[in-house]
């Protein structure tokens, strides 16, 4: 059993017989008042949005999903193909099913594929992934905006903010939960 205080982005819960993933979450609480857990969720089967505010005493069941370790092979158009490394069986998920995960998927990456009623519906990525910077503009010195970051593009086409010392060709670690830069990787 999960409670409202376990809610966070990416959590998968069972509501009215369907699995939902939390896509947006905000904790609010007037100092002397009740804790409010304002939550946006996506039905992992139908894609429908659910917006709801929960209270501390609300309880949840974990979504009834099966997981299997698989390897990402390649993408072709809207299809992303994965392989079971034990029996070499292959399957694919659509770009829509994968959502923001496609920003961090690179060939041969090991992921957990999630199944609901034997149907693949999503993947869980490693928390940290290392990706190569394919485009970085030199940092404009004398930038006084107070933001000591600059935008770069990584090999998947994903764009993010990094410290100014990161250069084209560097490998950087990204937190897949937040999509944010963690550190530069020495290899």
């Amino acid at each position: 059993m999960l409670s409202a205080s376990d809610l966070r982005k990416g959590l998968k819960v069972q509501i009215d017989g369907s699995p939902y993933i939390v896509t947006d979450f905000e904790f609010s609480k007037p100092g002397k008042g009740q804790a409010l857990y304002r939550t946006k969720m996506r039905n992992m089967i139908s894609g429908n949005q659910l917006v709801k505010t929960y209270r501390s005493n609300d309880k949840f069941e974990k979504a009834e999903l099966d997981e299997k370790k698989m390897q990402f092979l390649y993408s072709q158009g809207e299809e992303y193909h994965f392989m079971d490394t034990e029996n070499y069986e292959q399957l694919f998920l659509t770009k829509e099913q994968l959502g923001e995960n496609i920003n961090f998927l690179i060939d041969n990456m090991e992921v957990e594929v999630l199944f609901y009623d034997s149907q693949p519906i999503d993947v869980t990525l490693p928390i940290f992934v290392n990706l190569e910077v394919t485009r970085a503009d030199p940092w404009a010195k004398g930038d006084t905006s107070g933001n000591d970051t600059k935008p770069v593009t990584v090999q998947t086409g994903y764009e993010l903010q990094v410290p100014p010392f990161v250069e084209e060709g560097d490998r950087i670690q990204i937190d897949t939960r937040t999509g944010q830069y963690v550190t530069r990787v020495k290899e």
Partner: peptide
């Protein structure tokens, strides 16, 4: 619903 309306 006081807190909910206050916040939202």
């Amino acid at each position: 619903r006081f807190d909910e309306i206050l916040v939202e």
